[in-house]
């Protein structure tokens, strides 16, 4: 991942309001949690606003801007036709585009519909789905435009965001490790929940950055930072299914473990395809307006023509 320094890196010693990089924070299909994480940086916010001009940040200010942006943080996945148009426009107006969160980097929880019957989902969620325009897939930003850097997680880790902005001001590469969560878990002196409790944990195949939050409270990682470099998902899934430590989980239960916030990202997605555990419709009792139509054989992930990943 290359993150080109913004021009102000050269004059970073004495920043003035005149040469502050223009930063935007925008959202697509998402819960705003990552934006709130930025606002949670209470100790750093003042320093950040001194160094950066936040020209667009809907959760923080009524001020709006359509660009241009030196740095644009993009939250959310592309889930509707107009979003697909908007992201292309934003990309053209941006020097360094950074996706933030599981939705923007991997599609997010809403990408689960990619695996199932779109219309059935719509019908299950909205009383009048005819009024809702949505794509059959929810896709990461990188399926549509070039992304310069990714901050993973649901939500993102605030320290990684500060590290990224520091890297922008100093002109260095942000330190966003691609290692497994396990490294952070062991540095913290935590015991392995797989080994001591038979708790399924995706830490070994998930990118670190969260600080091993879930193992720290005795539960397994559910992969919200998405697949790490060289994730050996088959090795882990086979152990969950066949190994003695977990007492033999059902195949579809193991597949379901991988079908979470980053479940649409490969190679997590391939595990669910192979072992089962795709989300089923109905998610809840049907509403007054039933499905407008239904496909009886929902496609395997990645085979829909609308799915940008399938075209790669």
């Amino acid at each position: 991942m290359q993150l080109p320094p913004v021009p102000t890196a050269q004059v970073s010693k004495r920043a003035t309001t005149l040469n502050r990089p223009r930063v935007g924070v925008v959202k697509f299909a998402s819960c705003d949690g990552c934006q709130l994480t930025i606002l949670d940086l209470e100790d750093e916010l003042l320093a950040l606003t001194e160094r950066f001009e936040f020209v667009e940040f809907a959760e923080a200010t009524s001020r709006r801007s359509s660009g241009p942006f030196d740095v644009l943080f993009v939250e959310g996945s592309i889930s509707s036709p107009e979003q697909a148009v908007e992201i292309a426009r934003l990309r053209a107006a941006t020097k360094t585009l950074v996706t933030i969160g599981a939705c923007a980097t991997a599609g997010g929880i809403q990408a689960l519909r990619t695996a199932s019957e779109h219309e059935a989902f719509r019908a299950a969620v909205y009383p009048a789905p005819a009024f809702v325009e949505s794509l059959a897939v929810a896709s990461p930003i990188s399926s549509y435009v070039t992304v310069d850097a990714e901050l993973r997680g649901c939500p993102i880790d605030a320290h990684q965001l500060v590290e990224l902005l520091t890297a922008v001001t100093t002109g260095r590469r942000p330190q966003l490790p691609d290692q497994a969560v396990c490294l952070e878990c062991k540095r913290r002196g935590l015991e392995c929940v797989v080994v001591t409790r038979g708790e399924p944990c995706l830490g070994p195949v998930t990118q670190t950055g969260c600080g091993a939050i879930c193992p720290g409270i005795g539960r397994g990682c559910y992969g919200c930072f998405g697949p790490r470099e060289g994730a050996n998902v088959d090795g882990l899934a086979s152990w969950f299914v066949d190994g003695p430590a977990l007492g033999g989980l059902k195949r579809e239960d193991v597949g379901r473990l991988f079908a979470g916030f980053t479940g649409a990202a490969q190679p997590f997605r391939a595990v669910t395809d192979r072992l089962g555990g795709r989300p089923q419709i109905p998610l809840r009792p049907a509403t007054a307006h039933g499905p407008e139509h239904s496909e009886h054989t929902p496609p395997v992930w990645g085979t829909r023509p609308e799915d940008p990943d399938a075209r790669r």
Binding site: C182, K186, C192, G235
Partner: peptide, 14 residues
Amino acid sequence: IAERCLACANCTLV
């Protein structure tokens, strides 16, 4: 062994 090994680093850290 690479098919089983997760390269998760637990062995080295313990």
